[in-house]
């Protein structure tokens, strides 16, 4: 208990860092994932190919490698100077978006073709059909796997330690420097993550229940 109470400030700051990283990366990955999914189902061959390459390249690269690229290789490219936090977010967004895209695409496949046909027959364009008819129904079908991806993202934020972005994954270093029992310290971190996942699970349950009535 002392490990936690003595270092409450440390834990607080660290988990705040985790939450910040997660929120930015969650929103970013959902948006980018939706865009890439739209590319993969679009009638334009170049966009489809780009989407396919993106997903297969990023999905098959270890996250550590993606983040290391942004931590160490990106600054050498001397494009735009970005903070560690921003670079960590970009890495997490690019990586997670590939998974979001595939989940959304499997959702799109559950929407009957007739829905898109009816929408096109009424004069909707491709974008309108996708955003107002197909996507909303696709998302409903994939709430549980989409939540999985976001929970994985939450835990993946710990890899951002390599960036000097201070978050929960970095707590143990400071604990061990100050001579605390690291094992106990880690258990508290694990508990912290369990608590962070609760709102996501509740959100999933809520959305599942609300949308099951509609269809």
């Amino acid at each position: 208990m002392n490990v936690l109470l003595d270092n409450l400030d440390l834990y607080g700051r660290a988990f705040l860092g985790t939450i910040e990283l997660f929120l930015v990366a969650a929103v970013g990955s959902l948006v980018l994932g939706a865009i890439v999914a739209a590319m993969r189902v679009s009638p334009v061959p170049i966009l489809r190919t780009f989407g396919m390459l993106y997903v297969n390249l990023i999905r098959n690269t270890p996250l550590t490698l993606v983040l290391f690229f942004f931590a160490f290789a990106y600054p050498r490219l001397e494009i735009v100077d970005l903070s560690f936090f921003t670079r960590a977010c970009i890495g997490l967004i690019l990586y997670t978006a590939a998974f979001v895209c595939e989940v959304l695409r499997s959702g799109i496949n559950t929407v009957p073709v007739g829905q898109a046909e009816a929408s096109r027959a009424l004069g909707f364009g491709f974008n309108q059909t996708l955003t107002t008819i197909v996507m909303p129904q696709a998302v409903r079908a994939v709430v549980p796997p989409l939540t999985n991806v976001q929970i994985a993202l939450l835990k993946n934020t710990t890899i951002a330690s390599g960036f000097s972005v201070f978050q929960a994954g970095g707590i143990y270093q400071e604990l061990s420097e100050n001579g605390y029992n690291v094992l106990v310290g880690l258990l508290w971190i694990a508990l912290g993550f369990l608590i962070l996942v609760v709102p996501l699970t509740l959100l999933q349950r809520n959305l599942d229940r609300r949308w099951s009535v509609a269809t």
């Binding site: 007739g114 829905q115 046909e117 009424l122 004069g123 008819i133 129904q137």
Partner: peptide, 22 residues
């Protein structure tokens, strides 16, 4: 876009209704 405009003027009723489920 041209095609979408023309489709707007042509009503279509399907065998499987295809009402927007959501």
């Amino acid at each position: 876009r041209e095609l979408a405009r023309l489709r707007a003027d042509v009503g279509m009723v399907f065998q499987s209704f295809n009402l927007f489920a959501h």
